[in-house]
């Protein structure tokens, strides 16, 4: 059960969080000592510029007037969906860069998350149900796997499967990029094949470090559900083990997994960024890496904004979905 009051309150929290993130995004670059507009001119034109150019760049970066005026201008741009120009990819705007890169990141994240949840639920359910050896094994393995840093694992995979191992002189997987230059992007088989082939290592890296969390959570909730009274009733009624597992245990144990997806999403984003860096995968994380190395501040800000927005919205959605999935939950 969800009441309207609950939805409104979650919505207000979400707006406050967004407001904080956006304000932070505005203030940070302006706290840096020095004039970023001047910095661009000096680095790009080695000091050969006139004051008019400086004024132009300042106004383009929304750096003119008092802090308050800049803040109003910032919101104005934002509400018009304008994230400004990119220094490095100029004349491409931040909007264009994000629009072309975001789908790749969402593809990696979405696929990795889906596979992780499925594997996690299956393994967790099994070891929670059986306990004993499989249970201890799960704990030991998940401790090891979750301790693996995403980017190190990505580098190891890259080294082993894309560089060291060759079969008939060919590498098993590509070292970098999202598809090979020989195919034309579009809905054709060679392109799709190439995309899948290129995304295998990045996705496996993310799955290996993400699924143990889901497996452990699933295992723990299965163990809790097994103690519930309604399970005793189900057994007393003479329901088959299969029905009990499917309908009573797994369904109920899935609930906490659902909510944890949102939180896992917030942490897997960081992992995806680093993995993209390793595989030069043309997603938003690789763009952020490029932006950081060339000090492309508008691009850094824009990417932070989009990612924060996505994660905050995902959290809001999960809050609502959870209440919908579990009728026992009354949220006022």
């Amino acid at each position: 059960m969800v009441t309207l009051g609950y939805v409104i309150r979650r919505f207000i929290y979400m707006l406050i969080t967004l407001f904080v993130a956006i304000t932070l995004n505005f203030l940070l670059p302006r706290m840096v000592p020095g004039n970023p507009a001047l910095l661009i001119l000096i680095t790009k034109y080695a000091g050969n510029f006139n004051p008019n150019q400086l004024k132009l760049i300042e106004s383009e970066l929304n750096l003119r007037g008092t802090l308050w005026q800049q803040y109003i201008g910032y919101w104005n741009d934002l509400l018009h969906g304008n994230l400004g120009p990119s220094y490095y990819f100029y004349p491409e705007t931040v909007n264009q860069i994000i629009a072309s890169r975001l789908p790749w990141t969402l593809f990696l994240l979405g696929t990795a998350m889906l596979i992780s949840v499925i594997i996690g639920v299956i393994i967790g359910s099994y070891s929670g149900w059986k306990r004993g050896l499989s249970d201890n094994l799960l704990q030991a393995v998940s401790i090891g796997l979750t301790s693996l840093p995403y980017f190190w694992l990505a580098l190891i995979f890259q080294l082993v499967f894309a560089v060291m191992i060759t079969i008939n002189g060919r590498h098993l997987f590509p070292v970098a990029q999202a598809y090979s230059i020989t195919v034309t992007p579009g809905l054709n088989l060679p392109f799709i094949e190439s995309v899948l082939w290129h995304s295998t290592l990045p996705i496996i890296t993310l799955v290996i470090t993400t699924f143990p969390g889901f497996a452990l959570l699933m295992r723990n909730t299965v163990v809790t559900v097994l103690d519930e009274d309604y399970l005793l009733l189900a057994k007393a009624k003479g329901l088959s083990i299969k029905t009990i597992r499917k309908r009573y245990v797994n369904k109920n144990a899935m609930l906490p997994v659902t909510t944890s997806i949102a939180l896992a999403f917030a942490s897997i984003v960081g992992g995806a960024f680093l993995v993209e860096e390793v595989f030069s995968y043309p997603g938003i994380g690789y763009a952020l890496y490029t932006a950081v190395t060339v000090s492309d501040y508008p691009l850094i800000e824009g990417i932070f904004l989009i990612i924060t927005l996505t994660v905050i919205l995902a959290n809001f959605a999960v809050d609502l979905i959870y209440a919908y999935l579990d009728p026992r939950v009354v949220l006022k």
Partner: peptide, 22 residues
């Protein structure tokens, strides 16, 4: 409430933006 806000904002991107400007 402050804790909630900090927990929801994705950590790594926030770290990146803070470190990029400091």
């Amino acid at each position: 409430r402050i804790v909630d806000v900090l927990l929801v904002i994705p950590g790594f991107p926030l770290l990146v933006i803070l470190s990029a400007f400091l």
